[in-house]
Amino acid sequence: MTISFLTYAMAAVFAFAPAAARAEWQALEEVRPYSISGKTGAELYESIGARGPEAGTSRAIAHTTFKLTWTRKYEPQGNACVITTNRPKLIITYTLPKPSAALPPAVEGSWNAFIAGVHAHERVHGDTIKAMVKEIEAMSIGLTVADDPACKKIRIELTRRLGEISQRQRQSGRDFDKIELGDGGNIQQLILKLVNGP
């Protein structure tokens, strides 16, 4: 069986919740498997199409989501307002398929190569999320808005800047997916090897 087009797009879904200091922090990264079945590569891929995470009107092979919250402190300084504390808490979740039963040895080899490639793809999305959080942290710690003793204007300015950074991160993810999922792209090649294998 040959598949010439990627039927099930991968998706990076982003949930953004505001609030950083220059202390070191680490993202918590977790894998959330979903169960699929099959004894051949083609059957496994068909099961992914039926059970994969929803991505718009279709289903994805895998996706990356995150939850981002901040501990943030605004301090009036004279007639200005300054962000003096900005600590992120970032949880990244990779949703990946996992066969529900042992696979025949030849299929297991094909599967392991496929899922390693898919996981590597999703980790690139995770890296762009971590880079976004670091950019937000660098931009916002020490951010000062003049003539704002009640620390209201600074929140509006911060929200504007966060929106710009978030949009750049999302576009980066879309650009990466366009290459990876496009005709002849890495993910399409992984799918073809799985489906046309044992």
Rank of each mutant, 00 (worst) to 15 (best):
M139N: 07
R123W: 02
N196H: 08
Q171H: 14
I187C: 00
R174A: 12
A60N: 06
K134M: 10
N186Y: 05
F176I: 09
I191L: 00
M132W: 11
E108C: 01
P97G: 05
S47Y: 02
G184F: 10
R59V: 10
G182N: 05
T65I: 05
E46Y: 06
A62E: 10
G173I: 11
I48W: 00
S37M: 02
L6C: 03
E135T: 15
D183T: 11
G185L: 00
Q167G: 02
E75V: 12
Y45C: 05
L68W: 07
G52C: 07
P88I: 06
H125D: 03
G142R: 10
H121R: 07
T144V: 14
I91N: 13
M1Y: 06
T128A: 12
G184A: 10
P76H: 04
R87A: 14
A62Y: 05
T40I: 06
L44T: 04
G163E: 11
T95K: 06
I36N: 00
K178Y: 08
A146D: 12
Q77L: 06
G184C: 03
K89A: 15
G38W: 03
S140R: 09
A27V: 13
K134C: 04
K134I: 06
D183H: 02
V82L: 08
I36E: 01
P33E: 09
A60L: 06
S4V: 08
A150S: 14
G49V: 12
Q77H: 07
Y74I: 05
P97H: 04
A113S: 13
I187W: 01
H63E: 10
F66Y: 00
R160H: 14
A120G: 10
L96S: 12
P33V: 09
F176K: 09
H125W: 07
T84L: 05
G185C: 02
V82D: 04
K193T: 15
M10F: 03
I36S: 00
Q26T: 12
W111Q: 07
R123L: 00
R51S: 14
Q169F: 08
P104V: 00
E75R: 13
L103W: 08
P97N: 02
L143V: 07
P18H: 10
I154E: 00
A62L: 07
S172P: 02
H121D: 14
E29V: 15
G41D: 02
V31L: 07
A138N: 09
H121T: 13
R87F: 11
Q189E: 02
R155I: 14
A146I: 00
A11I: 12
E157I: 13
V82N: 05
P53S: 01
H125Q: 04
G56P: 05
T144C: 05
Q169T: 13
D127Q: 15
S58P: 03
A101K: 14
V145E: 04
Y94H: 08
K134Q: 12
T84N: 05
A60R: 02
V107K: 01
A50R: 14
I48D: 02
S140A: 13
E54F: 01
L96I: 15
R72T: 10
S172Y: 07
E157R: 10
W70T: 08
E30A: 15
H125R: 06
N86E: 11
G49I: 13
G182C: 02
R32T: 04
F176S: 08
I165S: 11
L90S: 09
R22F: 09
P76N: 04
T85L: 12
Q171K: 15
T64C: 01
G49R: 01
K67W: 02
I48M: 11
W25E: 09
A23T: 10
E108S: 01
